[in-house]
């Protein structure tokens, strides 16, 4: 079936996940080429990826190992004292599967050195601190010739389900245009072990946390709604008329709106004739002659 026939046949339908299907082999080829070329342009040959034990970072580690060779991938496992022991087991399994050496650095001392002085702290705030401590280590380990790879997927980016300058921070993100359910499918053909692909997604920032428990809906539900809202530009009212749950559609739409500040560069107050970010617009991939 041609693209025109396929796209023409797509209707918003809460029970039809098929629009999210991807050609995993094509996507794999495109992402390996993306990583290879975008690192080469900036003169880098080595990457750092934090492997959490989850499917997203396992898939990124697989893409990195395929692109650069396992010896050029610095894989870091960065647990806190409350991290689920299964996370360590799965991070090791992922690293072993793709032949990359996994280095473990416990972030407990540096997190507690700061938070210990503050007394009772909200768990989301604690989680944000952990995410930022992890990222500070990733950037340190990237010095002097490596780039930090991001592992935030499209669902997380659109919902704002991530920590600014924490897990959202990176130099290159190969998976940010794949919804969670699409990334899971890609992970399967990349060879990510079944036990990692099928487990409940979790940021593992506190005991018993799961993404879907915290969000209040499933990734399958969110991905399909986001696909129709974002990729196909349908209005919330059109999805509701097609049988999607009104409260859920409005909740997701509002999460996207509220979190948009997280997806753009910081605002700079416009004063002069030409201002970074406003009208000084050069491509990032500006090459030397």
């Amino acid at each position: 079936m041609s693209v025109a026939e396929r796209i023409g046949a797509i209707r918003p339908d809460p029970s039809d996940q098929s629009p999210l299907r991807i050609d995993e082999a094509l996507v794999r080829k495109m992402l390996v080429a993306f990583l290879r070329e975008e690192t080469k342009k900036s003169g880098h040959r080595r990457v750092v990826v934090a492997v959490s034990g989850g499917v997203d970072s396992a898939a990124v580690a697989a893409l990195a190992a395929e692109t650069f060779g396992p010896e050029n991938v610095t894989a870091l496992f960065l647990p806190y004292r409350t991290s689920d022991p299964a996370s360590r087991e799965h991070a090791r399994l992922a690293a072993k599967t793709f032949g990359v050496a996994l280095e473990e650095i416990d972030i407990t001392p540096q997190v507690d050195a700061y938070l210990g002085r503050l007394g009772d702290v909200d768990r989301v705030r604690r989680g944000n601190k952990m995410a930022r401590e992890r990222k500070s280590i990733e950037y340190d380990r990237a010095w002097p010739d490596g780039l930090v790879l991001g592992t935030s997927n499209k669902t997380e980016l659109l919902l704002g389900y991530g920590t600014r300058h924490g897990d959202m921070a990176c130099d290159l993100n190969p998976v940010g245009d794949l919804y969670k359910t699409q990334l899971r499918e890609l992970a399967v053909i990349l060879g990510v072990p079944e036990v990692i692909v099928r487990k409940a997604p979790s940021a593992d920032l506190w005991e018993g946390q799961t993404d879907e428990g915290e969000l209040g809906f499933t990734y399958a539900q969110a991905d399909l709604i986001l696909y129709h809202l974002v990729d196909r530009r349908l209005r919330p009212s059109e999805l509701i008329a097609a049988g999607f749950d009104a409260a859920l559609v409005n909740n997701i739409r509002e999460k996207v709106r509220r979190s948009h500040y997280k997806r753009v560069m910081p605002l700079i107050a416009k004063l002069s004739l030409r201002t970074v970010g406003h009208d000084f617009l050069y491509p990032r991939d500006w090459e030397a002659d």
């Binding site: 079936m1 041609s2 693209v3 025109a4 396929r6 796209i7 797509i10 098929s18 629009p19 999210l20 299907r21 991807i22 050609d23 094509l26 996507v27 495109m30 699409q182 696909y227 990729d231």
Partner: peptide
């Protein structure tokens, strides 16, 4: 630019251009 990897098939732009 290549785009349109979803909708259950290969690259959307490629098919449009060939058509």
């Amino acid at each position: 630019p290549g785009r349109g990897v979803a909708e259950g098939g290969d690259l959307g732009t490629a098919e449009s251009c060939r058509l």
